[in-house]
Each structure stands twice: as C-alpha cells, then as structure tokens.
Amino acid sequence: MATFQVWLVSTLVSAKPIGRLMHTRWGWPAAESIHFLGLSLLIGTIVLFDLRLLGMARRISIAALHKLVPWGLAGYATNLISGSFFLMAEPDQYIYNPAFHFKMLFMAVAGFNALSFYVIAARRTMGPGAEEEVPRAARIIAATSILMWIAVIVCGRLLTFYRPGGCGPEGPGFLAYCIPQIKRF
C-alpha cells in the first residue's frame, strides 16, 4: 500500500499547471471557497431528501423532492474537481494523512449507500404505486447517508490537524501515515 501511495503522490504531482495555479496568491483560498459552496449545496439537498425518507415533511412527495438531488450531485461534482486540485497541488499532505484515508472511506460508504438506494429502495419509495410508509431499508440508507456526509465533513476539517510528517527510521509500514524518506518526485 505504501508503494502505491508513493506512486500516487508522484503521479499527482506531475499535474504541474494545477499545482502552480493553486500556489498563486488566491488559488488555494478560491478553491477552498468553491469546495465549501459545493459542500453546502450537497448537504442542503441530500440531507433534505434523507430527512424526508426518515419521516420529516411527509406531505412532500418523495419523487418531487428527488428532483433536488441533481443539485446535490452538482455540489458533489464541484467538490470532486476542487478537491482533486488540492490533491494535485500538495499530494503528500493528503495521501499520507490518516484523516484523508478516513474521508475517502466514508465517501466510498456514502457512494455505495446512495447506489443501494437506487438498487433496492427507489422504486418502492418513489415509483408508481410507491408504498405510503417508507420501507425500513430506505430509512436505514437515509440515516447512513446523513451520518456519512457528516463524517466526511469532519474528516475534511481534521486534515490540517493530522498533517503527516516525515517517517522515522522504522519506515512507513503497510499503510503510510508519514512521508517516506525517499526521493519523492
């Protein structure tokens, strides 16, 4: 895994124009601002949908509320792009950062969780002849979604508190939490 991380860092850092852009006076702050706008758009729409599945605002049709989900996806895409810019500008600050590892883990769970909604619950909650009561599976998915997105936000904020330093003489271990002392670029 550590070998893969080293390769990933060297690959990401090769996106030099992005790195240069991010290291201009306003590059980093601008990307952060965009990242936070995308976050708010995602939370504001996806969490509303999850809350509806959990029983809030029952008089709003689930199918109608689902029309806000593409806006959440737009926020997600915005953050995928702005997030990748941070990664290309300072890869070792992320690839060797435990907060980043957890953030990716929670994002993956949130992603599979969202997919599972469409596979097992979408038809029963918003298709023709959808049941009045939201099935238990859909409610579990909704609660998982809210928890995972909060966890993603928290891990994002923890990134700066778990900045990796250089590895000691014992080396990086299986999953590196420190910057290996080898020629990186």
Binding site: L39, S40, I43, G44, V47, L48, I150, V154, G156, R157
Partner: peptide
C-alpha cells in the same frame, strides 16, 4: 461550524 454551515446555508439554498 462546517456542519452547521452546510445545514443553514444549504437548506436556505434548497
């Protein structure tokens, strides 16, 4: 502060 931002700004935006 960040979770609250997402809820306050996000729901108003929705």
């Amino acid at each position: 502060h960040t979770v609250g931002m997402g809820l306050a700004a996000g729901i108003n935006a929705a």
